[in-house]
Structures are given as structure tokens and as C-alpha cells.
């Protein structure tokens, strides 16, 4: 099972995660007697980068209309900031005593903290993106719910005008999301559900047309036509609900890579 939930998160965090693991091993092997180098300059570079990140993060929090992001992001920013302070403290301690064991521990703790904090930030953002996609999926569900009250061609035309751009957006965004996921099974489910939605949509519209023609001519079969239409609308609804469910799944487990 992949550790990182999306390919973007994986590409950003994996190299650093690997390096932190290697350094922890190195430190455990060379516990005594090796003086640490002067790390003031690289630590200061990290501090500056963190300060920029925190500034951008705070601006994002202030301008966002996503209440969950506004709630979750500050803690992640604080984690990164706190970890950066640990690195600064460790660097200062090592200047005084290059053999300091507690300084080395702070370095490792600070590095891990930055990794955890940036991971939390990326996850926070990723979840916000998923919520946007789900909002669009729910708009499609809202339209599907009114399919049964469409009884004239004019209404059907309007229905189609409203539904089509919404469906196209869902198709684009879910398709893009599927490509980002690292979990193969989730990807396959999204692909399958999306294919079903694309197949069912024109058939649903057709069934709605048939229903409208039948009731316009006052002929028999209106009930069966309505049942058929409702069945197709329900199938599409089920597929969209499955997409929403899978979008919210995650393979991310903080303890796994900790």
C-alpha cells in the first residue's frame, strides 16, 4: 500500500522522508565521538523558507472560503514553524559544543517536524481540493433529483443546458483526480464509475424524451417510461455517490511513515 496519497505529495515528501531515515540511522551508528559540522547557513536558509511558507499559508487561510481549511491549516503551519525553531536551537548548541548529543536529537526532531508539518499542509490542501470536486458531484446529484419533474421539451432543453456543463466539469475533475491517486484500486473504481456515468447520461436523456412524448400524446406506457427514467437516474446517482465515497478515501497514515 502506498504511503503517500497522491503523486504530487509523494514527489514532494518522499525524497526528504528517505533522507531523514538515512540520517537517523547514521546518527545511531555514530553516536559518540564525531563532532557535528557548522550548520548555521543551511539552517538559516530553511528558516527563511519557512518564514515565506508561513506568510503564504496565512494569506491563504485569510482569503479561503473553506472553513475546514481555515481550521486545519494553522496547526500545520505552527508545526513547521516550531520545527524550524528546533533546527535553529540545535545549530546554536552545536556551535558551542559540536559533540552535543541533545543538539543532534533536536536536529532530528526538527527535521521530522518539518516533514510532518509540510505533510499536514499538503494534506490539508489536498482535502480542500477534494471537497471542491465533491461539491460539483453534488450539483449533478441535485439535477438528477429533478429529472422526474421534467415533463415538457422546453424543460428538458433547460435541464440539459444546466446538467451538461456540470457533468463535463465532474468528468474533467474526477478524471484528473484519478490520475493523481497512488492507490490503484481507488483509481480503478473512479475510472469505472466515471465511464458508467458517461454511458448512462445520454440514455437517461433519451428516456426523459420518451416519457415526454408519451405523456404529450396521452398514450399508454407513461408509467413504464417513468419507471425506466427513474431507474436510469438512480443508477447515475449511485455511481456519483460511489465516486464521492472513493474520493474521500485516503491511504495516508501519519503513523506509517513516522
Amino acid at each position: 500500500m502506498p504511503v503517500f496519497h497522491t503523486k504530487t505529495i509523494e514527489s514532494i515528501l518522499e525524497p526528504v522522508a528517505q533522507q531523514v531515515s538515512r540520517l537517523v540511522i547514521l546518527h545511531e551508528e555514530a553516536e559518540d565521538g564525531n563532532p557535528m559540522p557548522d550548520l548555521e547557513r543551511p539552517v538559516m536558509a530553511v528558516s527563511r523558507a519557512v518564514a515565506n511558507l508561513v506568510k503564504v499559508g496565512r494569506e491563504t487561510i485569510n482569503s479561503s472560503d473553506d472553513p475546514i481549511l481555515k481550521q486545519d491549516m494553522p496547526a500545520a503551519l505552527m508545526r513547521v514553524e516550531g520545527a524550524s525553531k528546533l533546527l535553529e536551537e540545535a545549530s546554536a548548541m552545536l556551535k558551542q559544543d559540536p559533540l552535543s548529543g541533545s543538539a543532534r536529537k533536536k536536529l532530528i526532531e526538527g527535521s521530522r517536524g518539518i516533514l510532518q508539518g509540510t505533510s499536514a499542509l499538503l494534506l490539508c490542501f489536498d482535502e480542500s481540493e477534494v471537497r471542491k470536486i465533491i461539491r460539483e458531484c453534488k450539483r449533478v446529484l441535485d439535477y438528477l433529483a429533478v429529472a422526474e419533474v421534467i415533463e415538457t421539451m422546453e424543460d428538458l432543453v433547460q435541464f440539459l443546458k444546466d446538467l451538461s456543463p456540470c457533468l463535463s466539469k465532474v468528468s474533467r475533475e474526477v478524471g484528473g483526480r484519478e490520475k493523481e491517486l497512488t492507490h490503484q484500486v481507488h483509481r480503478e473504481i473512479l475510472i469505472r464509475c466515471l465511464d458508467q456515468v458517461k454511458t448512462l447520461a445520454p440514455i437517461l436523456i433519451c428516456s426523459m424524451k420518451i416519457f415526454i412524448h408519451i405523456i404529450a400524446q396521452g398514450g399508454k406506457g407513461a408509467e413504464e417510461a417513468a419507471e425506466n427514467r427513474n431507474y436510469l437516474a438512480q443508477r447515475m446517482t449511485d455511481e456519483i455517490n460511489e465516486i464521492i465515497r472513493v474520493l474521500q478515501l485516503t491511504t495516508y497514515d501519519e503513523e506509517e511513515w513516522d
Binding site: T8, I12, L13, P15, V16, Q19, V20, R22, L23, L26, H27, A30, N34, M36, P37, L39, P42, V43, A45, V46, A49, V50, N52, L53, V56, G57, T60, S63, V80, L87, L107, S111, I114, L115, T118, L121, L122, F125, S128, E129
Partner: peptide, 28 residues
């Protein structure tokens, strides 16, 4: 060990910049 730590801190620096880019990109 020196090279290891400097590499890690450089990598962390890059990591932070990439996260910042992600935020800026998605925010726009």
C-alpha cells in the same frame, strides 16, 4: 555526516519551497 546533514537541510529547503508553490498554484 556533514554532507549528509547539509544535503538533508537543502532537501528540506526545497521541500518547503515546493509546498509553498503548491499552495500558490492551487490558490490562484
Amino acid at each position: 555526516l556533514r554532507v549528509g546533514w547539509e544535503q538533508l537541510l537543502t532537501s528540506i529547503n526545497r521541500n518547503i519551497n515546493e509546498v509553498e508553490n503548491q499552495i500558490l498554484t492551487r490558490d490562484s
